[in-house]
Simulated assay, not measured.
Amino acid sequence: MDNSKRTVVVTGFGPFGEHSVNASWVAVQLVVHVGVSGMATTVTLEKCGRNHGYKGLDNSSFCPDSQCCIVGGPDCIDSVIDMESVCKRVMASGLGVSVSVSKDAGRYLCDYTYYTSLYLSHGRSAFVHVPPIGKPYSGEDLGRALQAIIQEMLELLDQAEEKIHCQHFH
């Protein structure tokens, strides 16, 4: 394995004590979750998380009694990231990894995590499903694809924020 490549997990925290705005959350800007899907044959960008329909037990034999993520939350929350644009841009870059967009993250831990993250971040989250190693991509292929995807997401987020910022001054 190439020692120059590292896996980095970045997290931020919400308000606490006298900190009504937590600088760590502002600095993180975007939360990206990645999960494996045995059904996926492409790197799949999830458009939205869904609140209801959780019936399967997780590895700890847990399932919420309410069968939903957030009681009283909206049925579906879309990411602020335009996943179709991310998909088109990454596919056009000639990376050699197929990318697609999905509207159903599966009503299991991935979807539960995504919905909860979207709810808490006001849509500033993303979820990417990857196929199992070797079916058809190597770990290195998937790593390169994720890097390209995250760069495109940040680019789109920056453009959206610039547009909002400009509108406030006109």
Rank of each mutant, 00 (worst) to 15 (best):
G96E: 12
S66R: 08
I70Y: 03
I149S: 06
E46I: 02
V21L: 01
S4L: 14
S125E: 12
A160W: 08
F13A: 12
V71N: 07
Q29H: 08
E161V: 05
V36G: 02
S125D: 12
H165D: 15
S85M: 15
G53K: 10
F169K: 14
L45G: 06
L154D: 12
D111A: 04
A126Y: 00
G38H: 01
I149W: 01
G35F: 00
V32W: 00
E46Y: 00
A105L: 00
R6M: 11
V101A: 02
G53W: 09
M39D: 15
I149Q: 07
Q147P: 02
K47F: 03
D158I: 08
V31F: 00
A40N: 05
K88S: 12
E140W: 04
H52D: 14
V36C: 04
R107E: 09
C48S: 11
L157D: 11
V32A: 10
E18M: 12
K163C: 12
G12V: 01
N59L: 01
Y112F: 03
I133E: 14
G12N: 05
R144G: 02
S138V: 09
Y119M: 07
G35V: 01
N51E: 11
A27V: 03
V9C: 08
G106R: 03
D2S: 03
V86P: 03
T113H: 12
I150P: 01
E152C: 11
H122K: 15
G38E: 09
E161R: 11
C76P: 03
C87Y: 02
P74I: 14
L120G: 03
S20F: 04
E152P: 04
E84K: 13
S102Y: 04
G73K: 02
G139H: 08
L146T: 09
P132D: 07
D104M: 09
A92M: 06
V32H: 03
N3A: 12
P136V: 10
P64V: 06
G14H: 08
E140M: 10
Y115Q: 08
A148L: 05
Y115M: 08
G139A: 11
F13S: 13
R89T: 13
V71K: 06
T116N: 15
S61A: 06
E162L: 14
G56V: 03
S61W: 02
G143T: 06
L157W: 04
H122E: 15
P131V: 07
V32D: 09
S60M: 08
H129K: 09
E18D: 13
F16L: 10
A148W: 02
E162T: 13
T42A: 09
V28S: 12
G72Y: 03
N22E: 09
H165R: 15
T41G: 05
V86Y: 01
